[in-house]
Amino acid sequence: MTRKFQTLEGFVAHLQNRVLPSLPVAVHRGVQDGAELIRDTVKEQIGQYLEGPEDGLPTAPLTDSTIDDRIRKGFTPDDPGLRSGEMRDSYGARVGEEGLEVEASIGSDDLKAVYFELGTIRDGQFHQPPRPELSVAASRCEQKIARGAGRMIVGALEGRPLPNSRSHEEQAD
């Protein structure tokens, strides 16, 4: 979309009234969409073995004793991190206030999720190996998030309103 301005004052007014107020909103929206995409991706990954080029992959198989314990307690035998769904459902995303710099945090307040992500050590060796769900999700979503945030910012610079749907829902890979 090309805009033409008759005067420099008209261009400055456009920047002041339309572009500058919308930039912080666009940045926030891009960060919020990205944080929600990472959160949703982590939730989808829980219960699966992860393979790929990211650090910490492929994830280790469950031990026989863990599988036996899961079966004894009435859970499926081989879905890492997924028993009742409580830990998976504990993941959330928090996003800071609108601005040209916006911070987000994605994670869980459940200690089981921390142990799951980082692993646990007993007698100098991993008792539970790390399963880097958050870092893998962030790595896998990075390009989609950058494209979505970029679309929001470019739209604001062009003076377009923000779309109603989330940027990561619009972009198919």
Rank of each mutant, 00 (worst) to 15 (best):
R131S: 05
A149D: 02
L162H: 02
Q128H: 11
T41Q: 07
D68H: 11
E44R: 15
H168C: 05
S22C: 03
I106D: 00
D89T: 08
G159W: 00
F5W: 13
F75C: 06
R122D: 14
V102I: 10
E97G: 10
R72M: 11
A26C: 08
R18V: 13
R29A: 15
E44L: 12
P80Q: 12
S135C: 08
V95E: 05
S22Y: 01
Q16V: 09
G155C: 03
F5A: 11
I46M: 14
V102L: 06
D64P: 02
I106G: 01
N17G: 15
L134Y: 01
S22I: 02
G107M: 04
L15Q: 08
P21I: 06
E158I: 02
E169I: 05
R3P: 03
N164I: 10
D64H: 06
M1K: 04
E97P: 06
D79F: 09
G155M: 00
R151C: 03
G85M: 10
E169S: 10
P58E: 13
D33G: 14
N164D: 15
A35Q: 04
S165P: 01
P130L: 10
V102G: 01
F116A: 10
T7L: 06
M1H: 04
G119V: 09
D123S: 13
A104T: 07
I145T: 00
F75Y: 15
R29Q: 14
D123E: 15
D89H: 08
F126C: 13
T41E: 08
L62H: 07
S165Y: 01
D68A: 15
H28G: 03
S84K: 05
Q16D: 14
R72W: 07
Q32W: 05
V12S: 10
L100G: 06
D40W: 02
A35Y: 03
D64N: 10
P58H: 14
T76G: 14
Q143T: 13
Q48G: 08
G155N: 00
Q45C: 06
T66V: 14
L157V: 05
G148D: 04
L50D: 08
H168G: 03
C141T: 06
H28P: 02
T120P: 06
V19M: 04
F5E: 10
L15I: 12
Q32D: 14
G56E: 10
V31W: 00
T63L: 14
E97Y: 07
S65G: 04
E86A: 15
F126A: 13
S65C: 06
F116K: 01
G47P: 05
S167N: 00
Y91L: 01
E98G: 05
I153P: 00
D69G: 08
D69V: 00
S135L: 12
K73A: 15
L118G: 07
T41S: 09
G52S: 14
S105D: 12
I38L: 03
K43Y: 03
G124C: 08
Q16M: 10
K4F: 07
G119N: 11
Q171H: 11
D33P: 06
T59L: 10
E169W: 04
H28F: 09
F126D: 13
Q128E: 13
F126R: 13
L20E: 12
G155Y: 00
T2Y: 06
H127R: 12
Q32I: 02
L111Q: 12
D64W: 01
A35R: 02
D78M: 05
R3C: 01
D123L: 03
T76I: 11
S167G: 06
I46D: 05
A13G: 09
M152D: 01
D55L: 12
E44A: 15
R147Q: 15
L118R: 12
G107N: 01
C141I: 04
